[in-house]
Design a protein around this nucleic acid. Structure first.
Lengths: 242, 242
DNA sequence: AAACTTCGTGACTCAAAGTCATATTTTAGA
DNA sequence: TCTAAAATATGACTTTGAGTCACGAAGTTT
């Protein structure tokens, strides 16, 4: 029996090589500007080799996005471990999301393209599965926090169902990312656009939910600074509180 | 002097013909599935004629989106005329948005593709202007309502700035549309997904803002029914209140 | 060392966006 | 009514880039 392990590692590392360079090229030229001939040249393998790993260009896009999702999962997990009030942990998740937007600003446009049915269709089942798992984990982390808060009595019984609260928070986030990406919104001149405003809107929404302590009863600006220092000091930290 | 008017009308009507058929084809196959050779065949003009009207395929996409924005503008204007409390008019705007999602469910994916920088870049300056105007009008209608509510004292002075409130509402809407479009979210099984949940979240957010009367103090379900009957009975009306 | 499997690749095909010189129609002037 | 000029429709073309495949090299098994 041979050493199939080494082969497997070589395969994985080549796939990683492709993904890293594809990511880098898309950062510069966007998905539509990514040329597979150029990518092949850059990684010093032929285009056909790329197609040994990925069924279509769209599948490659999904591969890159899954890489980003791994990072997201990592940051989200870290946020959930934050010691403090339940709503502070919610804040930490928000900070994680915004931090990611700074580390990989090109990540959202790619993610967003994937949502388009005609692109999604062309991806491989295998990688869709992986996407579902990774994305599901991130969702579950957030859902878990809401469950905790409810159990602790920080979210009143009169509040909407957990799923709807989660839906609202994710909507606020995705919507802000969408608007952040466009250069032609009236919002670009708004002070605090987009991340400080998003943070503020998280608080408006959570106050609406009744998640205690309410914004007026707690120094969340200080809490946010502490979260950044404690959890995300390694990642370059944008300040949204000023 | 000849009749340049007729020529102009012919030109406009041909442009409309192109846009209508492009819209129809994209409804069926999406933007990426739209083939300009097929479109040319269908309208019984050559492809080059299409390029007399639109500089690129992306420009054509923007043309179709502008058509949809006209409808949006129309419905939003109608919503703003609604007689009632300021927050009821806000509700009417929300209903308008959701109604549009039912009339043109394919509109958002197209809009969303346009947000991608590498697509936006390839559109013509002329049509970008038009987009800015149309989109700006819709924004201004919403902004105007918030201003009114503030003036009436329905929004407390302690609430966040108008622009931030608007940003929050738009974020909620865009985010929900984004999630509504994907078949692979955990949310698809949530009761009331997506429009009823969006409506509920509008109320959570507006309660957070402090926009009176609060959800607990008013029968907004009844108000919503009345809005639908009064303003949007012509458009096929989805029920979100049940 | 022969048979067999795995994997990389150059050279191809194919689809579709975009261009342009030419033909055709329309308008303006006499 | 005829002619010159302007506008515009189009068939045939170019170009770009995604995706395929037969073949050969390298490695594995018996």
């Amino acid at each position: 029996m041979a050493i199939p392990d080494r082969k497997e590692r070589e395969w994985a590392s080549r796939e990683h090589l492709i993904l890293e360079h594809a990511d880098d090229l898309m950062r510069q030229h966007g998905y539509l500007g990514l040329n597979l001939d150029h990518l092949a040249e850059r990684i010093e393998y032929s285009k056909a080799t790329i197609y040994n790993h990925f069924s279509t260009k769209e599948d490659l896009l999904l591969g890159v996005t899954n890489l980003h999702l791994r990072t997201r999962e990592e940051l989200f997990s870290r946020a959930l471990t934050y010691e403090g009030l339940s709503r502070e942990r919610g804040l930490a998740l928000g900070v994680a999301d915004i931090t990611l937007a700074h580390v990989h600003p090109h990540g959202f446009p790619l993610f967003q393209l994937l949502q388009n049915p005609s692109i999604w269709e062309k991806t491989s089942e295998e990688r869709r599965q992986r996407f579902g798992t990774l994305n599901g984990t991130c969702m579950k982390i957030s859902a878990e926090l809401i469950r905790q808060a409810r159990a602790l009595g920080d979210i009143p019984d009169s509040a909407p169902p957990d799923a709807q609260i989660l839906f609202g928070i994710i909507s606020l986030s995705k919507g802000a990312h969408l608007l952040a990406q466009t250069t032609h919104t009236p919002f670009t001149t708004m002070p605090g656009f987009p991340w400080q405003a998003l943070m503020a809107n998280y608080h408006v929404f959570l106050d609406g939910v009744g998640w205690k302590p309410l914004h007026a009863d707690f120094d969340y600006a200080a809490a946010e600074t502490r979260v950044r220092d404690t959890l995300f000091s390694r990642e370059s930290l944008p300040t949204t509180t000023r």
